[in-house]
Amino acid sequence: MSMAKAITLSDTTIGKKVVMAVTGLVLYGFVVAHMLGNLQVFMGPEQLNGYAKKLHDLGPVLYAARAVVLVSLVLHVVMVVQLLSRTAAARPIGYRLKKNQTTTYAALTMKFGGLALMLFIVYHLAHFTFPGVSMAAGYKHSATDVYANVVSGFKVPWVTAIYVVAQLFLGMHLYHGAFSLFQTLGLSHPRYVEKARFVAQTLGIAVAAANIAMPVAVVAGIVK
């Protein structure tokens, strides 16, 4: 006799993916907002520093928003660790020859790219958010002059290189992530699948390109 166990969504692999999709959407929103905020570096020091001050003056609202992003990130990573640890055992003996027919490079690199993003997030926070932890010699952190931080931070070529590489991973993660999350949430439709792929690709490239433009502009002396 079998008992129909009362399963909760998050017990299942599908439920864990649902959590990843929802938290991924929150993180995607954060990434876009963060990018739009930072792009004001091209509008000069007053604009960027003014924006930074406005953000800061939000006080509790800012901290609430940060909490949502942080909790989403933690859940996203906890779910992925749970999923990958069981899926790692799903094919103990691999193929000698395996040809993938439709999947993309972006989809296949989600694991490695996600790990790279995690490392990058830690580095990025150490670089700009927690002063004194900076790894670039000669970098002076100012709590109010964000513009100066950006310029002096990206003058170091290897720092800029880390950012550029990280953004390539981000772009791919956003591409497969945005494409995948609608399927996970059951919202995709075969009629729109190619359009969805195109939009996800375009947005991924756009975000990566915009984020790369900032450090590169400093190195090139356009932002100084």
Partner: peptide, 21 residues
């Protein structure tokens, strides 16, 4: 779904290789 998970199949990453095969 509970049985699928209990059997030790992996999760879905939306590669769509299944549909192609």
């Amino acid at each position: 779904v509970a049985q699928m998970d209990a059997e030790g199949f992996g999760h879905c990453s939306n590669h769509y290789e299944c549909m192609a095969a």
